[in-house]
Design a protein around this nucleic acid. Structure first.
Lengths: 108, 108
DNA sequence: TGAATATGAAACCGATTGGTTGTATAAAGT
DNA sequence: ACTTTATACAACCAATCGGTTTCATATTCA
C-alpha cells in the first residue's frame, strides 16, 4: 500500500469544536474512551466516532489495555496546519502578533 | 446587537480545500467573483457560496465596483487559528516543554 | 460461572454541505 | 434601445455529518 488517501484530513478534523476539545483533553495525558466521553454532553458512541476521525487524521494514537482503549494526542500532523498558516502571516493586520510569532520562532 | 453569532467560524471556513485555494488566490490581490470562478472546475454560483462562507468567517472583504464585486483577503481572523495552534506546538516541536507540561498537570 | 464494564458496529435520522440549474436584476457596451 | 456581462437568489439534490439507539463481543470482577 502506497499513499492511501485518508478519508479525513487535519483541516476537517479540527473543524468540529468537540474534536478540538478532545485534542486539548488529550494534551499530555492518556485517556480511555469512557473517560473522554464523560466530559461531553453526548453519547459515548458519538465521542468514539469523533475519535475515529481524529485517528484518521493522525491526530491521536490508541493503545488497547485490557478492555480499555486508551488514546493519546499526536500533535505532529498539526504542523501541516502551521505550515499553511505561515504563508498568510505576511498578510496579517495585526503586525504585533506577527512580530511576536516571528520572535518566538527565532529560538529554534 | 452585540457580538452577532457568526454562522461560520474560521475553523469551518478553512476546512474546505476549495476555500483554502480561494484564500491563496486572493493573497495580495483583489479579484472579482468571475475571475475567481474561472480558476475552478465548478460553477460561478458554487464559488460565490464559498465566498459567502469566507465572508461570514471574516476572511475576505468585498467591495462593489460597477457591476462587479471584488474580493480581497482579510487574513487577520486566522490569528484565532494561530493562537489555537500555539497551544499544541509544544507537543511536537519541543520535547522539553512537553515534559514541563506533563509535570504541570500531574495533579489531575 | 455469571454479572458488570468497555468498546465496537450497524442501522437510522434530521440538518448541513457542496454542488447544480433556472430566474431575476443591475450595470456596461454597441 | 438592445444585448451582453456580473452577480444574486431560490429551489433542488445527493452525500456527508453529528448525533442517536440497539445489539454484539471482549474483558474483568465477585
Amino acid at each position: 500500500m502506497s499513499t492511501s488517501p485518508k478519508k479525513h484530513d487535519v483541516f476537517q478534523a479540527i473543524a468540529d469544536p468537540t474534536r478540538r476539545e478532545i485534542l486539548k483533553l488529550l494534551a499530555g495525558r492518556e485517556l480511555a474512551v469512557t473517560e473522554i466521553a464523560e466530559r461531553f454532553p453526548m453519547s459515548r458512541t458519538a465521542v468514539s466516532k469523533h475519535l475515529l476521525i481524529l485517528d484518521e487524521a493522525g491526530l491521536v494514537q490508541s493503545r488497547k489495555t485490557g478492555r480499555e482503549k486508551r488514546y493519546t494526542l499526536q500533535a505532529e500532523p498539526l504542523s501541516e496546519l502551521e505550515q499553511w498558516l505561515s504563508y498568510f502571516e505576511q498578510f496579517w493586520q495585526n503586525k504585533m502578533s506577527m512580530l511576536k510569532h516571528l520572535a518566538e520562532r527565532k529560538e529554534n
